[in-house]
Design a protein around this nucleic acid. Structure first.
Length: 281
DNA sequence: GCAAGCCTGACC
DNA sequence: GGTCAGGCTTGC
């Protein structure tokens, strides 16, 4: 599932292979795939930059002559892929759009079996609005903003970490891994996480994301980068997907429960439930 | 039938 | 406003 490290890996690949190239044509194979402005808006423009905020990728397209700048906003959702292929390579099933580059011998293809992802072609102002609705990027946020945003919220810390309006970039895998690293029980109300644990969680989030980026992300099922390579972080997972297996730290059994409708993996002895005493803060 | 991310909407 | 359930989609 593409979370911050996977999207960053895709962004870096695009920067290496697509930056500065001209979009010669776009073929939309599934109507409605590109929302916002008409897809033909992209044609003839150059790719000026690739940015990322949380899990959202922004491909900035140059203005040409009297045409203003435009942005292609990419959300990979759960099974979305962007892959760079030679024109003659066979299409993966569920390929919804192909963006031809330069002379058309190579194209960037968007494929998404579950269709939870989206492409949106927007004006710079629309992009700004969209990014404004996202919380700070999980790698850019400062410690004081991170701990401050936890505030006195009553919801489970797990849900807080997944809320993209509060903090952007974490999905189920890295939320569980960060909570394990910080030894915080996923059901702890966000506002009840102690000062020391907030600091530990802040560091754990950054640490797990940085390490995952260094290994090109996690391929649990579908994720691959633009050159078709899977991530290499799976062997580093401590709790995600390891329910019933021994904790790598204490040998107790990793558990799986549902919090906010999402599966949560944790070690009940490394991550204790908060005690409800006056001194628990 | 379950999993995922995220949007919508119901409820306090 | 905060919180969370429900629904979307499809391969396993």
């Amino acid at each position: 599932m593409p979370e911050l490290p996977e999207v960053e890996t895709v962004r870096q690949g695009l920067e290496r292979r697509v930056l500065g190239r001209r979009i010669s044509a776009i073929r939309v194979l599934r109507p409605g795939t590109v929302r916002g402005q008409p897809a033909s808006w992209m044609e003839g423009r150059r790719v000026a930059s690739f940015h990322r905020k949380g899990k959202t990728l922004i491909m900035e397209l140059s203005g040409e002559g009297s045409r203003p700048r435009a942005d292609l906003i990419v959300r990979l959702g759960m099974t979305g892929r962007l892959v760079l292929n030679p024109r003659e390579a066979p299409l993966l099933p569920h390929t919804h759009a192909c963006i031809s580059l330069d002379d058309g011998r190579e194209e960037l293809r968007y494929c998404d079996p579950r269709r939870f992802g989206m492409l949106r072609l927007s004006t710079p102002q629309e992009t700004e609005q969209m990014l404004h609705s996202l919380g700070p990027d999980a790698l850019e946020v400062t410690e004081s903003e991170f701990t401050g945003r936890m505030g006195k919220r009553h919801g489970a810390i797990k849900g807080w970490l997944l809320n993209q309006q509060v903090l952007s970039g974490l999905g189920n895998i890295y939320a569980d891994e960060a909570l394990f690293a910080a030894r915080v029980h996923p059901q702890t109300p966000a506002g009840k996480v102690s000062k020391a644990a907030r600091r530990a969680l802040y560091r754990a989030v950054r640490n797990v994301l940085r390490r995952a980026i260094a290994l090109q992300g996690t391929t649990f099922r579908d994720y691959i980068d633009i050159e078709g390579r899977p991530g290499k972080f799976m062997s580093r997972l401590q709790v995600y997907g390891r329910a019933g297996q021994p904790c790598r730290r204490c040998n107790n059994t990793v558990q799986r429960i549902v919090i906010c409708g999402r599966s949560s993996h944790f070690c009940p002895s490394c991550q204790r439930r908060p005690r409800k005493t006056a001194f628990s803060l």
